[in-house]
Design a protein around this nucleic acid. Structure first.
Lengths: 229, 229
DNA sequence: ATTGACAGATTGTTGAACAATCCCGCACTC
DNA sequence: GAGTGCGGGATTGTTCAACAATCTGTCAAT
């Protein structure tokens, strides 16, 4: 019983130890391709072609497809194949409705002594990335900010739905031609939300967030309409 | 162009037309077995046995397993197999935290002219089932009530996460020995929430719901502690 | 211009096979 | 007796090849 402190900590490393299944690794490869925009929405993913390209069997590949389909990055049409998801304007509305509900609700019910470290770190990362002109990093820091906000709920399930929603949104962000002008204005808002949280004004933080989510939504749908679909 | 009115309506029937894949049907069979409690939590599902029992190949069966694992009804342990999920007390807490966040948030942002038909129907079904002593039906009507509440958001994604959470909760409900004493008290609460909604008092409706969810959570965790795990 | 039929390509599903891993019982040591 | 190391059997992970079912596109017929 002398080593109980050890084993407790080790349980956290377990995930890193169990090497992912082949399907999981294949899914990871495809996921990054999709979220980085290198596989544009609507692209059809052939089982045959990708199977030989990655050196995995069709069955394993199909398993990877299922994973990504469940994350809504791919859509699976029976007897037709899988396609990179193409989001509609309705989807964008729905995603932001979901975000306002969840992120706003989480902020409103955040207790005064909640640990804001992750939120603060994301804000600072974004600011330093902007100072260095690394606009892509500004975007990912922004993602991390919202992920951290959702994590304030202390709920694995809330965190997971947020992760899915943000992954979906990346499919949309690629329609924005200029990442700088899109992401930059929100840095100050993120900082302000953090300040409000630290001062204990959770209602104010929630309102600020909801307002700025609505603004972002409008900006996105406008850009969306411009591209035709 | 003369028949455009027709084809519009037909698009709704499309879902019923596309017969599900074999894996999908297998998943449906297993899903109902699990949510009905005939496959108790912790049961191991052998690929071999179930495969021959249902007359499908192992590959297809594994695909069905994956579907259910994503819905968190099964857990997949690498090289060990799949098991019917066994929820911990922490899971119960998390599920109710999620529900308070989502259902409460939805009610609070419901507009005065929202269509309450589905909510009302669920309340009435529950009441008539209770009058007839059909306690199992009372339980399902209760589920439907909460599903209808979530649907007030008008968001497919909110609806889907709610569906998943409620399916998970069914794994827990089976520890309640007496379905009557557990479900019956909430009938009046559901009716009250409906009344508050119809009178436009969304904040009151949300508070009532959140309070009663907390009560149900306490009741469940207590029964859970009694059973040992 | 619409319909019908045919051919080619792709997916859905199966069965078998082999490697990798886990579980369980047994002997062995201290 | 408790703990350790070691097979043997069973189960899962992954691949492969094959066939059935379905979709897509083309071309002729009306």
């Amino acid at each position: 019983m002398a080593s109980s402190a050890w084993v407790e900590e080790l349980s956290g490393e377990r995930a890193a130890l169990t090497r992912a299944s082949t399907a999981g690794r294949v899914a990871e490869i495809l996921r990054s391709r999709i979220t980085e925009g290198r596989l544009p929405p609507g692209t059809r993913l052939s089982e045959e072609d990708i199977g030989v390209a990655l050196g995995v069997s069709r069955n394993t590949l199909r398993e990877a497809f299922r994973l990504l389909a469940h994350e809504r990055l791919l859509v699976h049409e029976f007897n037709r194949g899988v396609f990179v998801r193409r989001l509609t304007v309705d989807d964008v509305h729905d995603l932001y409705r979901f975000r306002r509900l969840v992120e706003g609700g989480v902020l409103r019910t955040t207790s005064a002594d909640a640990p804001l470290d992750d939120v603060r770190r994301a804000v600072e990362e974004g600011e330093s990335a902007a100072a260095g002109g690394r606009w892509v990093d500004v975007g990912t820091a922004n993602m991390r900010f919202h992920q951290a906000v959702a994590a304030l709920a202390g709920s694995p399930r809330v965190e997971e739905s947020m992760r899915h929603v943000l992954a979906e949104l990346r499919l949309v962000f690629h329609v924005m031609a200029a990442p700088r002008t899109f992401h930059e204005p929100y840095l100050a808002e993120n900082r302000r939300i953090l300040d409000l949280l630290e001062s204990g004004d959770v209602a104010g933080a929630a309102e600020t967030l909801e307002r700025y989510l609505t603004a972002a939504e409008a900006q996105l749908t406008e850009a969306y309409a411009a591209t035709g679909c």
